[in-house]
């Protein structure tokens, strides 16, 4: 498998990168980790005329928390999510996902920005960002704009990102007191796309009531799915067995899987139900101080 040739640019500033993308009018692709793109180029299913390698642009790889948000730079390698102290302590959903994306070697090179902006329904991080109600910062020829994750994914591999825009940062609302989160991925083996995966973020108030619940689903529809009804349902509930079951059922109804080697539609829906229930329980346990 040998890719066709292409022009290669390694700009050192974002403006330069955006200029190059703009100049190629959709025929250039951003090369970040390249863990999906290069594979498709080797199969010659993707044949971009030019690649704009953004790896030499400084200051795009970071994880930092301020008063309002956790900010993750686009060039942060996905392996870093599982290693970051702040993420492990307060945004466990991302640490969980960071240990499940592809395999450990691929995670060393694959980037958060690539995982989020590719629009692949099988990628793990979009569902987490949907659960977390994150925002993406995109920079293009007209400057910066912010796109809510829940409005970003339009169809399989179709996102709100323009052809000359680069996703530069993901911003996750700062985790408040009593918050807990988790990501569970059912996969056939390491390196597989999920059969079904569920990300949950919530907080448990002093009263014991669930607040701010968000549930995201991976690879059970044309895009990552925000399970709105299930999320809304949980708010104000205590997380009883019946609550969890109901949340699972609502999430299952929100999924729209297709049959493939991983199984038929009804099985995948049921896995959404089961893993939603289990993952919500895990997030609640974490919110209450468990691991």
């Amino acid at each position: 498998m040998y890719p066709p040739n292409f022009e290669y640019y390694a700009p050192t500033t974002l403006d330069e990168a955006i200029g190059l993308l703009d100049q190629h009018q959709g025929e250039a692709k951003v090369l970040a980790g390249g863990q999906s793109l290069i594979g498709m180029m080797k199969l010659r299913l993707a044949q971009p005329a030019a690649l704009v390698d953004i790896n030499r642009i400084p200051d795009l790889s970071y994880v930092r928390e301020d008063a309002s948000a956790l900010a993750i730079g686009a060039l942060t390698r996905t392996a870093e999510l599982g290693r970051s102290d702040v993420i492990r302590a307060r945004y466990a959903i991302l640490a969980d996902a960071g240990r499940e994306i592809a395999d450990p070697t691929v995670r060393n090179w694959g980037t958060v920005g690539g995982n989020l902006s590719h629009g692949d329904p099988g990628n793990d991080l979009p569902a987490c960002m949907l659960a977390l109600n994150a925002e993406y910062v995109a920079q293009g020829p007209k400057g910066r704009r912010t796109i809510p994750a829940r409005k970003f994914y339009q169809d399989s591999f179709v996102t709100a990102l323009g052809p000359s825009e680069v996703l530069v940062e993901a911003r996750v609302p700062r985790a408040g007191p009593g918050s807990g989160s988790a990501y569970s991925k059912m996969e056939r083996k390491v390196g597989d796309y999920a059969t079904a995966a569920v990300g949950v973020r919530l907080a448990v108030a002093k009263s014991g009531a669930i607040e701010g619940a968000g549930i995201g689903l991976t690879n059970v529809g044309p895009t990552a799915i925000y399970a709105a009804a299930a999320s809304d349902f949980l708010n104000g509930k205590t997380g009883s067995a019946a609550d969890l079951e109901k949340a699972g059922e609502l999430a299952a109804s929100a999924s729209a899987p297709v049959a493939d080697n991983r199984g038929p539609v009804e099985f995948k829906r049921d896995m959404v139900r089961v893993w939603t229930r289990r993952t919500v329980a895990h997030a609640i346990a974490r919110a209450k101080g468990g691991a």
Partner: peptide
């Protein structure tokens, strides 16, 4: 061919569109 073997998960929704 390859589109069906490897690319189907990427193509399926689009044919309809």
């Amino acid at each position: 061919g390859p589109i069906a073997t490897i690319g189907e998960r990427m193509v399926k929704g689009t044919v309809d569109q």
